[in-house]
Nucleic acid binder design. Structure first.
Lengths: 279, 279
DNA sequence: GCAAATTTGTTCGTATGTATT
DNA sequence: CAATACATACGAACAAATTTG
């Protein structure tokens, strides 16, 4: 029942970090010092440090040393804003995903962050299987995908990809395949062009390890540590006596730098009462 | 700029897994076989396998071998249900956190899952710093914490801890310190006993590595792989001309087994149109 | 029930490469 | 260039878990 030595060392170091005995940003003892201090082989203390590193508690840099990770102020994103039942046109407007311009990240401005985006990368492709299910179309059908890369304060912040049935383009929504932002957002464009009115949407949130392209863009270490949070939104319109999905947007965010917020009923302004950020 | 050998091996194995050449649940070659196959030392192929393991792609079991992880059907939890403005009493009722009984997990029943809970573990403690901020009370103040352990299908599903200012007990809400469920939930109890009416709440979602006690209960491997999703809810009441937080509930869920869903406006039933679950 | 074989887990030692100052 | 510190790679030995004969 005795713990392996590298776990004991890791637990000891973790306790020192969490108690503040080793402060944020401070340098850990070098591997040689740890080797002597714990009376273990260098490989063994490396196992311990790797455990902490894979948990994100410390970061190692060759030639410099190993440092306690600084927790950065997270980007706060408000998900489901209060419903806007009296707005004309679309009955519901969401904070994350409707707009393609800077409106989509207005919340970041309020936090004193400066958001920016790459233009959309537009591709026509065979539907990914999962997207086909959400859009209610047959696997193998063509879809238009529009991918944006978002930055906040110059740091990568999110990857957002929207999928539309290709038939929308054939029906006249030709701007969908132009690599430019759609004024007012794609939902408004589809309403103008095809008369599709968004009456609601469903968002699914999950956390998972990053794909390699995601890890690369979001600057997540490619060693399996850290994960991404994805917010997948299916937008619905009324049609044929039932609700029909007409767009899917997937937003991928780095888990260690974001907080998602949902307000229900009457709540104070975020500035007045900070959102819970669990340590 | 050449990739380290253990990464090349990991990439090769990952490609085989993702292409299906090694099926879900199938056994990887043993470390000895991999050593011969890749012409590397055993420690090197172990590094490669560890990388995949920390990403959750494979699981190793002593004496048996290493197997491709089976992706389980996730538990779907609906977060912000449609607002209930016409309900008497509390203006807003939430799906996750208001009720202490089985109502809180009714959604699981609909999925054919059988939820169960341990009784609450009640403690009176000094306020954790973060909780103090959300409750708007001074650090060092006493709070009542009520922790529930939830299971679904016999598997651990979530840890839920609610915090209340201790003054509520002194003011007459003495049942808060009893280790029993409160009929109708604690929000209803506080309204009956103290006249506190919940007018809204804010939920903050984030993903982070598990604390060691969380990893233990949720049966997450203690090797840093995997993370937890936390949903922290601050509940507000109207008072003194402003909104005052009166309760904080933190729910901790295993990231690899859950999906959070938010509905806005008109959406189909979940059973009719499956929530997006991004692969 | 027990012993052997198989497979992963832990620990050590050593050597060399690479990034930073 | 030299010193420092982490990264990679190899080899070896023993421990612990599991299955099989």
């Amino acid at each position: 029942m005795t713990e392996p030595m590298y776990r004991q060392i890791a637990d000891d170091l973790r306790a020192q970090i969490e108690s503040g005995a080793i402060a944020q940003g401070a340098k850990l003892p070098t591997e040689s010092e740890l080797r002597v201090g714990y009376g273990a082989a260098r490989n063994t203390v490396r196992e311990a440090v790797k455990l902490l590193s894979s948990r994100g508690l410390v970061e190692s840099r060759p030639g410099l040393g190993t440092f306690v990770t600084r927790s950065a102020r997270p980007f706060v994103t408000t998900l489901a804003a209060a419903p806007l039942p009296e707005a004309g046109g679309a009955a519901y407007a969401g904070a994350l995903g409707d707009s393609e311009g800077t409106e989509a990240v207005a919340g970041l401005n309020e936090q004193g962050r400066t958001p920016s985006a790459s233009g959309p990368l537009v591709t026509v492709q065979t539907t990914p299987d999962d997207v086909a299910v959400w859009l209610g179309i047959s696997p193998g059908t063509q879809v238009v995908s529009r991918r944006w890369e978002w930055f906040a304060d110059g740091r990568p912040w999110s990857l957002r990809t929207s999928y539309y049935p290709f038939e929308f383009v054939a029906s006249g929504a030709t701007d969908l395949v132009r690599a430019e932002g759609l004024p007012g957002g794609s939902v408004a464009y589809l309403e103008r062009r095809l008369g599709l009115v968004q009456v609601g949407y469903r968002e699914s949130i999950l956390a998972r390890p990053p794909a390699s392209d995601e890890a690369k863009f979001l600057e997540l270490p490619d060693d399996g540590r850290g994960c991404v949070v994805t917010v997948a939104r299916a937008s619905y319109r009324q049609g044929e006596g039932r609700l029909i999905p007409f767009r899917v947007t997937v937003t991928v965010l780095p888990a260690d730098r974001i907080v998602l917020v949902i307000n229900s009923g009457e709540v104070p302004d975020l500035a007045d009462h900070t959102a819970p950020e669990v340590a």
